[in-house]
């Protein structure tokens, strides 16, 4: 069992959980994910690591309540335990292999969308600690949905907020902000990293392609085991099939078949709908 040492509501339906998992914390690197199972009946849910602290042996995850499992997770309180917390899984971000000089000479643009802002944080933090400059765009529908802005402010070189309704920062989509930065503010970048909903990542890669800006995306494919055994997370990259769990989760965004990835992500949506209804029904009983 893995104890929840901290729980915070970050926005509507978005919660932060800091979990006691010393072995995972010890080995975690930016870009990796964990598999979480809330209880005996629970699904194995892949979640990208939002932060880790080797000293106190904790790992932070940020969850948006969308289905039965995420709802069950978010219903827990500080001091409660979850059944399983396995990881770190997947490959760390490519940039951790770069030399100090290379890091110092590069400039990154991170594009974070919604709950995907959380996994961007450890990457920017790591780069900041290694002397690499990174600008960050955080996108959300509206100001109340923004998360991690304070934390990001501390590690990003420049932080830009983009909201669809203009309630905070730039009014418009993150893609419009990318264009704004490059076209109007004269910014230039060596690499873009986009993490967020599939549809956002798809449009970010279409935008960055116009500027020939190499773009890495972190895919949140469906998974069962997360260790290479099931193949549920198959994704086509440059016409070849990869397993997101062991070959990713980060891929060259310009080569990912996003339409297929989005379709595959919806494979169990009908069943999940049924399960959510059942769960809600059960919850109303008491």
């Amino acid at each position: 069992m893995f104890r929840i040492v901290e729980k915070r509501a970050l926005a509507d339906n978005i919660y932060l959980l800091r979990i006691e998992a010393p072995r995972v914390a010890q080995s975690a690197l930016p870009g990796q994910f964990v598999i979480v199972r809330v209880d005996e009946q629970g699904e194995r849910v892949p979640l990208t690591i939002a932060d880790y602290d080797k000293e106190d042996g904790t790992v932070t995850i940020v969850i948006q309540t969308i289905g039965v499992s995420t709802r069950k997770l978010c219903a827990l309180s500080e001091g409660d335990s979850i059944a399983d917390f396995a990881g770190p899984l997947g490959n760390p971000s490519e940039f951790i292999h770069l030399s100090e000089e290379e890091l110092k000479s590069r400039r990154y643009l991170f594009v974070a969308g919604g709950v995907g802002t959380a996994p961007v944080y450890p990457q920017v933090k790591w780069l900041c600690e290694h002397g690499c400059k990174a600008d960050v765009i955080i996108g959300a529908k509206t100001a109340s949905m923004l998360i991690y802005t304070e934390e990001m402010e501390k590690v990003a070189d420049n932080l830009y907020i983009a909201t669809d309704d203009g309630s905070c920062g730039f009014k418009g989509m993150v893609t419009a902000k990318i264009k704004d930065l490059i076209d109007n503010e004269g910014k230039s970048y060596d690499e873009c990293v986009a993490i967020g909903p599939m549809i956002m990542m798809k449009f970010v890669t279409l935008t960055t392609k116009e500027y020939s800006l190499p773009t890495t995306v972190s895919l949140n494919a469906l998974m069962v085991d997360g260790t290479g055994m099931c193949g549920a997370c198959r994704v086509s990259v440059d016409g070849k099939t990869y397993f997101t769990c062991v070959d990713g989760p980060e891929f060259d965004g310009h080569k990912v078949d996003f339409d297929e990835a989005m379709r595959r992500q919806a494979m169990y949506r009908n069943q999940e709908g049924v399960a959510t209804e059942k769960h809600n029904h059960k919850c109303n009983c008491f």
């Binding site: 069962v224 085991d225 055994m229 099931c230 193949g231 549920a232 198959r234 086509s236 099939t241 297929e260 379709r263 595959r264 919806a266 494979m267």
Partner: peptide, 15 residues
Amino acid sequence: ENLNGVVSANEFLTR
């Protein structure tokens, strides 16, 4: 092979 509805036996049996 990546159409929705194609799964490995490992995935089907693990589920």
